[in-house]
Amino acid sequence: MWKNRSINTANKFRKRLFGMGENDGFVFKAVVYLLLIGIGFVYLYPMLFMLVNSFMSLDDLVNSMVKWIPSTLYFENYAKALKVLDYKTTLLQTLLVAGVPALLQTVAAAIIGYGFARFDFPLKKLLFGLMLATFVIPTQITMMPTYLMFKKYELLGSLETFIYPAILGQGLKSALFILIFYQFFKRIPAVLEEAAEIDGAGSLKIFYRIAIPMAVPSIIIVFLFSFVWYWNETYLAGLYFGNELTILPLELQRFADSYNKVYPPGSPGNQLNEAINLAGTMLTIAPLLILYFVLQRWFVEGVDRSGITGE
């Protein structure tokens, strides 16, 4: 009896430690949590570093004793960064530059993806392959021909340089978004559309009454990813917009030159230190962070239901 009791105790301990069947043991859970904490720290460390240092005064920055806790919260860094970035005007332009093309690109990708998924037409495989090729071909190869085309039609310096490609399914990463919708619409049971056709619904009505409501997770994912990519696109924005339009990431690249114009050498507070630069960086990414926290639940649900992992 004593021996059996010892064996049962050992089995229970082994089960709790290593798990058994579908139950995960303590060792497995500990390893998973340690990995998640480590990965989370790698992602959060730069953000925490920027946030803490953006509130430091110049004295705190040069003081080797001050690491993570500023002696005082120095808000003057943000006041200067707001002025240098011309934040209100630049933010409105950035929301326009990122929001309008992202919305139009989402609509276009949904229509094109649905067409490839549910209809058969001549040269379908060829056109699908060419569409995927646009994702493989680097942007640098098509950049100059596109620039010359926009220049010929006098579109440079306007938002139309982003709008027209988005409408035609040639926006930033459009091929990827079309593929997302294509895979989603392929999984919709054909019997739903057949039942709608029996009730007299046409293809357009089936699309916006049946397919679109079911594709809400994919729509959320595509719009958010598209919005972020347009928000961070500085090279094409600088090339196409010139001095007519600007975005926050583009102004952040020009931060040092803009700072010297606002605070010329010899004027009070003309020294550009690391904390002011970090404050400008935080102001640039703050709208994206707010957007994520507001839409976090729908974003995670959309990723889970659509099977998209991002890049």
Rank of each mutant, 00 (worst) to 15 (best):
F227V: 02
K151S: 15
F41D: 09
S306I: 07
L127P: 09
E193P: 10
R297P: 01
Y33H: 06
F299W: 11
T284G: 05
T234S: 14
I221E: 02
F181Q: 03
T139P: 10
M149H: 07
T72W: 05
F135I: 13
A102W: 05
M282H: 03
F181Y: 09
A81G: 01
A195Q: 10
L176A: 10
M214P: 07
Y153S: 08
N273P: 12
L126W: 12
G38H: 02
I111M: 14
M56L: 11
T89Q: 12
L91G: 05
E233V: 00
I247K: 08
T146C: 03
E244S: 15
F41L: 13
L123W: 12
T94H: 06
D86E: 09
G266R: 07
Y45V: 07
P217I: 00
P217H: 03
L283T: 06
G113S: 04
T234W: 13
I39S: 13
E154G: 10
E160I: 14
I210W: 09
M65C: 11
G238S: 09
T106K: 03
T246K: 06
M20C: 14
P217F: 03
F41M: 12
L156V: 03
L295R: 01
M1G: 14
L204T: 10
G310E: 15
N273E: 12
L85G: 02
N8L: 15
F55Q: 03
T90W: 06
E251C: 04
E274T: 14
I112W: 00
L278M: 04
L85K: 00
E244T: 14
Q105L: 07
A196G: 09
F18H: 10
T72R: 11
G238K: 08
M50H: 08
L295H: 00
A256P: 10
V294R: 08
D86V: 04
V32G: 07
G25W: 01
F241W: 07
M65V: 12
G242R: 05
K205R: 15
A286I: 05
F135V: 11
N232F: 06
M144V: 15
Y45P: 04
L204E: 00
L289I: 13
V262S: 02
M143H: 11
I7M: 12
L172Y: 04
Y45Q: 08
L289W: 12
I219F: 03
K186S: 13
V97K: 05
I212H: 01
L278S: 02
T9G: 14
Q170A: 15
A133R: 01
T106P: 01
P249T: 05
L159R: 06
S6K: 14
V27R: 06
K151W: 10
I69M: 02
T90A: 09
R209E: 14
D304P: 06
F225G: 05
K80Q: 02
I206D: 06
Q93G: 01
N273R: 08
A133Q: 01
V66Q: 07
L283Q: 01
P217T: 04
F116V: 02
F181D: 02
Y147A: 00
F207E: 05
A108W: 02
V191N: 14
K3P: 12
A117W: 09
F184I: 04
V303H: 08
M143I: 12
D199I: 09
E194T: 06
Y259H: 02
L224R: 05
K67F: 13
I37C: 11
